[in-house]
Structures are given as structure tokens and as C-alpha cells.
Design a protein around this nucleic acid. Structure first.
Lengths: 258, 258
DNA sequence: ACGCAAACTTGACCTTGATCAAGTCATTCC
DNA sequence: GGAATGACTTGATCAAGGTCAAGTTTGCGT
């Protein structure tokens, strides 16, 4: 993963590998340099630790350089509800721009490298950079879009479909970040997946066994492998991107896999 | 409802009854006047008609003055998914600020009075009014918060709880708008409720009968009555607002009802 | 390397809510 | 006003997935 060498030179937005998908997307080179100037700290958070917790003063937002983070909250009877998993390149805690305290917990699922941006600094910068406002609005809208897509997945589909859709969605995000989509490390507990999808760990376990037996995908330890990406996509209920194309090779599996 | 007299004087933001909850919230008097200037049209949309449809060019956002609107979309097998119902004072189609086309259908559930704001006009105005950017961001964040709350409701609760939570949530929104919370007209089909909550119409019908028999609430025709608001809130899994208060009267039912 | 705690698996059983079918009730359109 | 259409109700049946219980495996701390 990016940024894991402890002795590496100081990473700036200008030379960060995540520039394309992170904050700076859509900003000019000059603007990126000014953004860099307010990025004071690049904290590391250990497995299980919180970037922030519900109720804490919301003073900063974070960009995730490596690792995985879950955004969650507890209902009145203490059940965890997991809204999202963040991957490298995602921006976490945007709500802080708008509210005095965080509304959710953000928990690192493994060791995470982050960039921390103070809300006050960002606000000040935004007054001089209209593009940044647009950028922030777009990130917020994307977050809304993700939550809606997730709701559509959970609201009315079978357990098999939910799980297939989840895996496919994660695979797509890895693909978009330039990684292989047919095999990747995913440090998420099956229990957390179950919670995220409104299922039980037992059900997830049974479905994963079935998928494995059918040769569709395996998910053992933290290693996910899509043996038949098209079948996963099909189960997930996602359209093939180039339906009207060549028609010879599967556009998803051939174009992006391996 | 507001704005229903056809011969009424021209309604402006400055004299609109929804000023507190709609767009202008957080703007100065001067800014509201400038906002007014770009509000050219105040369309009326009939029952079942669309404000906009998925795939259309996203050129405007809307403020709802009267009526109810659903935001929905269809999955691959043609099943409707309903994300939100908008009540008077809500702003609809914010995504348009950020995208070339609408991603959802917005359908009027009864006759609706609207304000239409062109995205281009709003963009231009926002460059001169930093408050407006903040305002837009806040509305977007609220929309995200609503979607997450809805997901939490549907993801892991029983059918009874989902329905109670839905009714309670709507009642709260009416209360916040200055209407009675224990009885109101709600022009939403039971079928649409079922879709919104990931249930079937049959299940909704059975649960409503049970609630009626238990004296908790009735929902006949379009008339909703909460006979025991506290029971509804309890079922919905929502904390009483003033738990540590007087302790004598139920803070919700006495303070806001009737 | 050992042992404990947590994660995961597997099987038997049960509950919730979906499905199917046949009705009743409202609303709308001539 | 009366038929036709769509909304809602009610009952019988069924299956997906939850629950409970007892395993096995994994990972971590010492």
C-alpha cells in the first residue's frame, strides 16, 4: 500500500499517489500547493483505534492514505450499525465542516496512515479558493450517493445478492484506484460485513461457503479472490458497462482483471 | 397549506411562511432579497406528475411550498425504490448543483406548489454570497443524515418498529414546521410506505390494523392520528428529548401535542 | 511455543414476513 | 349514478434467514 515506508521523504499532495482520487481532484497545481500548506499532521492510527468518536468536537477531516476505516454508530439497544467502509484515497469526516460534533465513530480496521486537515484552516482556504467549495460539495454528494446505493442494496434484496453486491462494489473501488479487482486483501471481519448488510455472521458464513463451492469467489482470512467476476457482477445486479460493445469478450473480466 | 390561494399576491422569500425552514435559513435579510431576484418561476405540478426524471438534464432545484413529493428510482427488475418523501419547506434536487443529469425521479404525490431555482443562477449568486455555499452544504449534509437515519431504521429492525419509526419521523417533521404532530393529512399510499420501508403492502396493512386495535395510532384514508404518541416514539426506538426534565408529564406528548 | 479469547463454522430449529389468492372498499371516468 | 380500475384487507401457506448451541480455527499476548 502507498506511504508505508517509514523513512520515505515527506509526502505532499503534489507527490502523493492518491492525488487523482483524493482531495486535490479537480484543483489546479497551484491550489494543490496551497492545500498542502495547511496539511500539518499525518497521523498513524492503530488497529481498533478511533479517528474520532460520536460526540467529540468535530475539528478536523481526514484523508486516508492506507488502511481501512469503518463509519459506525450504536442504536439504543447497543447494536452496532456500520454505514460505510473507507478505502485509501477516501476522505473521512466531511460532516465536520458543518457541525460542532461528530455524529459517528470512525474506527481503523487495521493500521492506517492519514492526512489530518483542520476545519478552521480549510474554511479559511475555501474563502480564497472557490474550486475548493465545489470540491467539498462534490465529495459530500458522492457520500450521499454511496449511502443511497447501499440502501438500495440492503432494502429489498436477498442475502446472496447483498453479499455479491458488496464484494463487487469493493472490487470496483480497488479497480478505480489502479489495483487488481479480482484479488485483494480486505481487513474487514465477516462480523462487520454482516452488520453492514443487515445480516448475521452465520448467514454470511454459509453464503461464502456456497460461493466457494460454486467457484464464484473465495474470502478466506483477509484474502478475497473473484474466480468468476462476471458471475459476481451478475448476482450483484450490476449492468455490464459496455453491453453494446464488441460482444466478444466480457468487458469487465477481460478488460480489468489480472 | 401555504400558498394555495390562486389570487394571492406574489409570494416572495421575504414573506413566505416557510422562510425559517426553507432555503433562506441562515441568510441575512439582504441576502434573501437577492435570492428572491433569481426565483423566476413558481410552478404547480399535478398529482402523479414528475418534477424531474432520472436522466434528464439537471438544470434546476426546487423548494416545496405545498404538497408531498417522493424521490425514487427503479432497479434492474423494475422494482421501485423510494428513498425519501419531501414535505413543505424541503428543497428537492440539490444533486443538480453537481451533476449534469438527475439520478432519481421526483414525483408529486398530490398537487404541489413549488419554487424553481435555476442552477446557473444559483451558481452565479453563490460566487457573491459565501453564506449561500455554507447553506447549500448544510442542506446536502442534512440529506445525507436523513438517508443514514432511514438506513438505520430499515437495516436491522422489525416491521413494526420500521413503521412506527416512519410515522414518528413524519410527525416530528410536521411538529418542526409548526403543525400538530398528533394528527395530520398524509397523501402517501400504503403501497409507497411499504416500498420505502422494504416491506409489502400486506404487511403494512396488518401492522396498521394491529396498531389500531392497540389504540396506538390510526391511518385511514389519508388521515393519520397518533392516539398514544409516546407509545409510537417508544416503538420507534427514539429517545424522549427531555429524559432528565420535570419527570411529571411526558415531554413529547404534552409539550407538543394538541 | 502455549494458551486464551475472539472469530468463524456448522447444524437443528423457529419466527418473521413474503407470497399467493380471493375478497372488499374507494375513486375516477363516462 | 354505475361500472371499472386501483387500493387496501384478510387468510392460508411457505421459505429465507434469524436464533441458539456446540463445535473448530485463528490470532495475539506472554
Amino acid at each position: 500500500m502507498a506511504g508505508s515506508k517509514p523513512h520515505a521523504l515527506q509526502v505532499t499532495c503534489a507527490n502523493c499517489g492518491l492525488q487523482r482520487i483524493c482531495f486535490p481532484r479537480g484543483l489546479t497545481q497551484q491550489e494543490i500547493i496551497r492545500l498542502d500548506a495547511i496539511l500539518q499532521s499525518q497521523p498513524v492510527v492503530g488497529k481498533g483505534e478511533a479517528l474520532f468518536k460520536q460526540g467529540e468536537a468535530a475539528k478536523a477531516i481526514f484523508a486516508l492514505k492506507s488502511g481501512v476505516v469503518k463509519l459506525c454508530r450504536y442504536d439504543r439497544s447497543g447494536n452496532e450499525i456500520i454505514h460505510t467502509f473507507y478505502l485509501p484515497g477516501d476522505v473521512i469526516g466531511l460532516e465536520a465542516l458543518d457541525q460542532p460534533v461528530y455524529q459517528y465513530d470512525a474506527i481503523a480496521l487495521d493500521r492506517c496512515n492519514l492526512c489530518r486537515v483542520e476545519v478552521a484552516d480549510l474554511d479559511r482556504l475555501a474563502q480564497q479558493m472557490p474550486n475548493l467549495n465545489r470540491q467539498v460539495l462534490q465529495m459530500m454528494r458522492r457520500e450521499l450517493e454511496l449511502e443511497r446505493a447501499h440502501f438500495e442494496n440492503v432494502s429489498s434484496r436477498s442475502a446472496d445478492q447483498r453479499l455479491a453486491h458488496f464484494v463487487w462494489h469493493i472490487a470496483e473501488r480497488f479497480r478505480d484506484r489502479g489495483y487488481a479487482m479480482d484479488t485483494f486483501q480486505l481487513p474487514i471481519l465477516h462480523r462487520d460485513i454482516a452488520t453492514h448488510l443487515g445480516l448475521t455472521p452465520e448467514t454470511v458464513s454459509r453464503i461464502l461457503r456456497k460461493f466457494h463451492q460454486q467457484g464464484i469467489l473465495t474470502w478466506q482470512r483477509k484474502q478475497v479472490t473473484l474466480h468468476d467476476p462476471c458471475a459476481v457482477r451478475e448476482l450483484a445486479g450490476v449492468e455490464a458497462p459496455d453491453e453494446a460493445g464488441e460482444g466478444e469478450v466480457c468487458p469487465v473480466c477481460q478488460a480489468h482483471v489480472g
